[in-house]
Design a binder for these strands. Sequence first.
DNA 1: GAGGACATGTAATGTGTTACATGATTAA
DNA 2: TTAATCATGTAACACATTACATGTCCTC
Lengths: 195, 195
Amino acid sequence: MREIGATPNALLGLLSLEPMSGYDIRQMISRSIGYFWSESYGQIYPGLKRLAADGLVEKKTERRKGSPDRHVYSLTAAGREQLRSWLKLPAAREVPRDELLLKLFFGAHAPVKVSRNHVQAYLELQEERVRTYATIRKKLCKEAANDPQLPFCLIALSRGRHASEAAVRWCRETLKELEKLEIAKKQVNKAYAEK
Amino acid sequence: MREIGATPNALLGLLSLEPMSGYDIRQMISRSIGYFWSESYGQIYPGLKRLAADGLVEKKTERRKGSPDRHVYSLTAAGREQLRSWLKLPAAREVPRDELLLKLFFGAHAPVKVSRNHVQAYLELQEERVRTYATIRKKLCKEAANDPQLPFCLIALSRGRHASEAAVRWCRETLKELEKLEIAKKQVNKAYAEK
DNA sequence: GAGGACATGTAATGTGTTACATGATTAA
DNA sequence: TTAATCATGTAACACATTACATGTCCTC
């Protein structure tokens, strides 16, 4: 069996929830795993084609008057097996690529205000996330109380909450540090001007 | 002026610390920004070539007996200006791509033990990081006490610490949840076998 | 004398996004 | 009537990693 990467396995995982079309998958991502995973159409459509060719998913065409045909894919037994064996493999480490931190790290080359603005914007984003996660959590516990999927959703959600709360704490701390730095710089400039 | 991406700007930033060769840059990354940024040789060498062609860096060749020439690059005034203007631009959002969470989210398709192992491995990694960050912090405060770069290093470091501490908390919480889930499953199986 | 660090770089390959092309339906 | 949503998909491009090619010096 050929090795298959995270993207096709993510497609299999999503199809394990329910049979879907490529379009549906995109929707589903933004409604579920969008906070920690994303796929573009350019990955989804060719990906589904490949999976079908490999017999891991099955394609059914729903003909509809007017609008184009809907291609609904569902997992096959082989697909389910592939997903299972991929789950057992250790998760690949994320490639570190945090542009915000990169800009902050080189912050000495710009006015402190620039760094502060970056952190402030990030703070607002993360505060928003904390609220969103709380909302999703309530909704989920009510609507999917008996779903066997629920505990795993909550685990992912909890990861998001912990991460965003930590980000918020760091932002507040960092904003204070940057303000101190700004004041210190002004003092230096003033002393320099007076001399 | 042509738009340039995060990778060339990262190279400019690193060269702002001191003139370096491509090889040096790779070393420098693992000793400094490696926890939140990475670049491969396949990006670094052609990247430096482009930057030199655009006049943003200057190349000096150190001839050495025996071993191959060393190509040391340093920032030009234009390069410094480019870095400055890039720093002002808002940081691009990270593309969410967390394979661990993906595997946990679909954890219902595998024995709970599989998910627990993933979380356990991640916990160990993050605990290690917390220790590493503390070590680096001490070293940095001692060795670079008067470096204008220091506050920005500490900000990045603090981000790492907050993130890893949050990850550790989430791991411990999640391990407990997964253990509960495992016990609940065993009870169900037992009840099923007795019937 | 084997292996690893030093040091350069390219080519093949993989991965992923964006923009485009098409066209119906529906709501403002 | 203008825009958005539904729905499919491809092609061009951008971005990154990996493996390879080359050769010295130093240490075990």
